[in-house]
Design a protein around this nucleic acid. Structure first.
Lengths: 146, 146
DNA sequence: CTAGATCAGTTGACGCATCAAGTAAAATCA
DNA sequence: TGATTTTACTTGATGCGTCAACTGATCTAG
């Protein structure tokens, strides 16, 4: 019960704190950051919309709206996949890359400050395992986690 | 890093899973449930709006909107606090009490299924401590947690 | 080779959260 | 006592996420 109440607060307040940091320092939401960061991590800075959606834990519809906005800001562009016209490729532009490079350090520091630093090494390891167990309970046939 | 990726998924998917269960089974959001459950836990089934807001980890504005909806559904009513006219008391109605009683078991079971059951006893204890440490890092002068 | 089914993505309407501005009651101070 | 400030809350405009309906491309059966 105590565990649960502690967790509920974290579930609400930690995302709010992280969103706040990104919004203040970079003018983007955490979801937008995940999208840009996801693209930046691939060799070609490119991903299919559906891949990107599951990577960033969002629906395809949500991603479509968000990428639309990111496109207007000049950080992403879309092209049909030459290999299969049903897929759409989201590509990080040069400006988008710069945005990620400028934003990442502050965000990583916030994550450290809020989550990693307050915990012991053992707790950090435990938390990784705890997270995986919970994810398995929520969605047994999920393949996102290593 | 692995810890962080695991945690991000939990932060997004666990609330979604819990919201989903409540929405399907009771037609209310997790926040609405927290509000009703909070009121149901006090002896007089009554709380000041500002107390209720901090209990349920939401802004006063958000609570005001939500209580407005709950009032329309007949589960809560509002009266000015006789002791101080600035405060508004939110009171759980009989129908509201019945709603909580009908909803709680399914929700508790979902929490068990998603969070508590997959973890060992030691992990559950660890998670409580982890949650508190994170909350302290986010908001050092927060008094919500025991 | 073509008719239907399926897959990937987009779009628009609706609901909820957030922010800024507003109201009303109590406290503070002149 | 009256004027100002503070506190508690409400309201309305705006923006984002969700759901259902849609478009177009590819696959499959006959």
């Amino acid at each position: 019960m105590q565990t649960w109440l502690a967790l509920v607060s974290v579930l609400i307040r930690l995302p709010a704190a992280l969103d706040g940091q990104l919004q203040r320092d970079a003018g983007i939401s955490h979801f937008e950051y995940q999208v840009l960061a996801g693209l930046s991590m691939t060799p070609e800075r490119t991903m299919r919309m559906s891949e990107l959606a599951s990577f960033s834990d969002g629906s395809l519809s949500r991603l479509s709206h968000v990428v639309g906005r990111l496109e207007k800001r000049g950080w992403v562009r879309r092209t049909p996949d030459p290999a299969d016209g049903r897929y759409t490729l989201a590509v990080l532009t040069e400006d988008g890359w710069d945005k990620v490079v400028a934003t990442a350090p502050g965000h990583v520091e916030a994550v450290r400050g809020f989550v990693l630093d307050p915990l012991t090494k053992a707790q950090t390891r435990q938390l990784r395992d705890i997270g995986r167990r919970i994810m398995r309970a929520i969605d047994p046939d999920d393949t996102c986690l290593g």
